[in-house]
Amino acid sequence: MSSILLQPGREKSLLRRHPWIFSGAVQHVDDEPLSGATVDLLSANKQFLARASYSPISQIRARVWTFEDEPVDREFFRRRIRSAIDTRQKLKVEGQSNAYRLIYAESDGIPGLIVDRYGEVLVLQSLTAGSEFWKETLADLLLEETGLATIYERSDADVRELEGLEIKVGILRGDLSSFVFPITEHGLKFNVNLQSGHKTGFYLDQRL
């Protein structure tokens, strides 16, 4: 596995569990990893600090997947997705609305990935090199863990350009008969356009 050696003293943010490493903190990148590939973050004296996704273009050069020395693989992401689903179930969000944020990037341990649920449809945004690298795996796991069949991608945020990524919009899994989807929020009904609505279609990040 490739690694990033940090400048002396620049490990302090990681020791405080901050999940980002900026380009100015990097002393050396080993083996020229692919965009989005997993790398080890090492202190100046080569102590393991974290495992992260690598972005060769962004000012945020690495985003931490885990502070543990553990594999970052399909089962790693399955555990993260299950944890996010369990959290929403404990909060009983489905009792308030049939639309809610299922995955919220760093908050759920998957930097760059936003997933909103609108009834039987998931809308996915991939905003970083790391989430893009694992997107197909993440999409498969989301369907396996939710039991749903459809994912619509809205990776159209300007921040993707900072990661060297192109805009991607369209059906990622399954099919849709309509892009206008009815949701209920605390007894109020809204028609949400998944294709052209703001963000993923609605302001679900304002609630959860």
Rank of each mutant, 00 (worst) to 15 (best):
T150L: 02
L41D: 13
E11R: 11
D205I: 10
F76A: 08
A139Q: 08
R78T: 15
G112D: 00
E136W: 05
I114C: 02
T184R: 15
T184L: 08
H28R: 09
I4R: 12
S3H: 12
R173N: 03
A84F: 13
F67T: 11
R61Q: 11
S13G: 01
L91E: 14
T146A: 06
Y100I: 10
N193I: 06
D30R: 13
S126N: 05
A52C: 10
V192Y: 03
S55Q: 01
I183L: 07
I60G: 08
S126P: 00
D156A: 01
H198M: 14
K46Q: 13
H198G: 12
H28W: 03
K92N: 15
F190K: 15
L49T: 11
T87R: 15
S155V: 09
G9N: 02
L5V: 12
S43L: 02
R80I: 07
P19L: 12
G164N: 08
T128C: 05
F77K: 06
R160Y: 06
G112Y: 02
I57Q: 11
L141A: 08
L15Q: 04
D116Y: 00
V39P: 08
S3M: 09
E11L: 09
S177T: 10
A62L: 01
E106Y: 08
I60V: 14
I81C: 09
T150V: 01
V26F: 05
G174I: 01
R80L: 12
N45Y: 07
D69E: 15
T150D: 01
D156G: 04
Y203F: 14
F76S: 06
G174K: 00
F67P: 08
L172P: 00
R207C: 06
E136S: 13
E136G: 04
L165H: 02
F48C: 13
D69M: 12
G24V: 07
Y203M: 09
T137F: 08
